[in-house]
Each structure stands twice: as structure tokens, then as C-alpha cells.
């Protein structure tokens, strides 16, 4: 990047935005790359996701035909744990700047606040998509190795896990997107509340409280509703490959619910960022 280049290109209105955004993107990428624990957190996400998925796959047995288990969902159980680390990563991407006062430096360098947030979101999404893909593929591979030993065999009606299978591919791609949406939800929330502690508590509360509440609600209709609006339960519906009709919400519709939550959080965050003094 040549800093002089931007000055010259800034003459044309469209070009100016484009170049500035590219520069901001580059800056945000450098920040995330040099933040110190980004790499460690991403590695932790992958490790936890694969380990929990592997453990679950090892624990669940399928003794005979029609045991009703969903092997793909089992292998991807680790996402429920990995998402917590992704949420931390996303929250810290903005809260750390508020915590250290660096946000002022950032906004001095790039006065358009939405550009900053958009660049952060883009960089974060890219990073999470990459590590999420690694985590999901490794989980599926582990499942493919472990599950047949637990009775998930052709004799019991289970083919080995493969991405060539449509629903499996959907579950895999959906899980990666799920992680990216969790990152955006966390980023939006953290932008809105600024403080890391409050942001983390809000995001984890939002994710984990719905499923717990669902267990208590004694009315099937309400239960159904809760599952449909819960960011985690609805979002993870994309992992389902069997008994699709019995699920409270369809795979892509479920991911759509999470996307709506993420969009709302980002919108709130950007509105507040725009309106607020730093």
C-alpha cells in the first residue's frame, strides 16, 4: 500500500471510498493479526470444537437400526463450545480498543465510523470462516473415523460421513456460517455496549439462556416458539440431516433467525457508534 496513492485517488468520490475502505481493511487486518491472542483463540476454537465433537461421537452408540441419531450433528457438537471462543475473539476485537483508548486513534485515522465497523466485520468474518472451515472439516473427519466403531454403520443405515452427501454438506457449510454469524453478533453487541465484560455476558446469555429456558417451559407451543427464536437452537438447526420435519425450524430458516439476531446487533452497534462520542 502506498499512502501517496490514496491521496491522489481520493479525488474521485467513488474511488476514494473504495481505496479508503481497502486501507481500513488492511489496517484492521494488521490490528487483528498483531493483537497477540488472535492466533491462540482461533487455534483454541478449532481444538475445542474438534475435541468436543470427537468426544461426543465417541460417547454416543447406535446399537441397532433406527436409533434415530444424527451422526453429522453429533460430529459437529463441538460448535456449541467453539462458539464461545469465537464470541470472545469478536468481542475483544472492539472492546479492547475501548479498554485501552485506542478507539480514539482508530477513529482519528479513519473518521468514518461505519467504515471502521464494516472493515472490522469483514476481517473478522474472513478469519472466522477460515478457522471455522478447518474446525468443521476436522470434526467431520474425526466423526468419520470414530462413528462407524459405535454402530453408525451401513448395516444400521448410516453411510460414512462425506461432503458429497447434500445434507452433510449443508450441515458443514451451515456450521461455518453459524460461527461467522456468532462472530458478527458478538461484534455488534460489543460495539453497542463497549465494555468486554458486559458484551461477553450478554452474548453468552443470549446464546445459552434460550435452550435452558426451553427445558423448563411446560407448554409445547411455547417451547416450539422459543426454539424458533433462540439464536443458538435455531441457528444450529442447520446441522440437522435426519428427521428434518420434526425440527422446530428448517435448516436455512434457522440460520436466517441467527442472521437476523446478528444483523440487529450490528445495526444497533453501528447506530450507537455513529451517534456516540467516543
Amino acid at each position: 500500500m502506498n499512502p501517496l496513492g490514496s491521496t491522489r485517488l481520493a479525488d474521485t468520490a467513488n474511488g476514494a471510498w473504495h481505496v479508503t475502505f481497502t486501507h481500513t481493511l488492511h489496517a484492521e487486518w494488521t490490528k487483528l493479526r498483531t493483537a497477540g491472542d488472535t492466533g491462540r483463540l482461533l487455534l483454541l476454537t478449532i481444538t475445542l470444537t474438534v475435541a468436543v465433537g470427537c468426544g461426543t461421537a465417541k460417547a454416543v452408540k447406535c446399537p441397532d437400526t433406527g436409533c434415530g441419531q444424527d451422526p453429522v450433528k453429533l460430529a459437529l457438537t463441538g460448535i456449541t463450545v467453539g462458539q464461545a471462543v469465537i464470541a470472545v475473539l469478536a468481542v475483544l476485537a472492539i472492546s479492547n480498543e475501548y479498554g485501552t483508548g485506542m478507539i480514539r486513534t482508530t477513529l482519528t485515522a479513519v473518521p468514518n465510523r461505519l467504515t471502521v465497523l464494516a472493515a472490522k466485520a469483514t476481517v473478522l468474518t474472513t478469519v472466522v470462516l477460515a478457522s471455522g472451515t478447518a474446525a468443521v472439516l476436522a470434526s467431520l473427519l474425526a466423526g468419520r473415523c470414530v462413528l462407524p466403531g459405535n454402530g453408525f454403520t451401513a448395516a444400521h443405515g448410516y453411510a460414512p460421513l462425506t461432503l458429497a452427501d447434500g445434507p452433510t454438506l449443508r450441515a458443514a457449510a451451515g456450521s461455518v456460517l453459524y460461527l461467522a454469524l456468532i462472530a458478527l453478533l458478538a461484534l455488534g453487541t460489543a460495539t453497542a455496549v463497549r465494555d468486554a465484560a458486559s458484551a461477553i455476558a450478554t452474548v453468552l446469555g443470549l446464546l445459552y439462556l434460550f435452550p435452558i429456558l426451553t427445558q423448563v417451559v411446560n407448554n409445547p407451543h411455547w417451547q416450539h416458539r422459543l426454539q424458533q427464536i433462540s439464536p443458538m437452537t435455531a441457528g444450529l438447526a442447520v446441522q440437522a440431516t435426519v428427521h428434518l420435519r420434526e425440527r422446530p425450524i428448517g435448516p436455512w430458516a434457522g440460520l436466517g433467525v441467527l442472521a437476523t439476531w446478528a444483523a440487529t446487533a450490528l445495526m444497533t452497534g453501528s447506530l450507537l457508534l455513529h451517534a456516540r462520542d467516543t
Binding site: D37, T80, V81, A84, V85, A87, V88, V91, L92, S95, N96, D195, A196, A197, A199, I200, A201, L204, Y208, I212
Partner: peptide, 15 residues
Amino acid sequence: RSGTAITLVIASIVL
């Protein structure tokens, strides 16, 4: 660090 600490505690109790 508050962020990582809170996540660890909440995740270890609730997850």
C-alpha cells in the same frame, strides 16, 4: 483479562 475470564467461567458452569 475480563473477556477471557468471564467466558471461561460462564462456559464452564453453563455449558
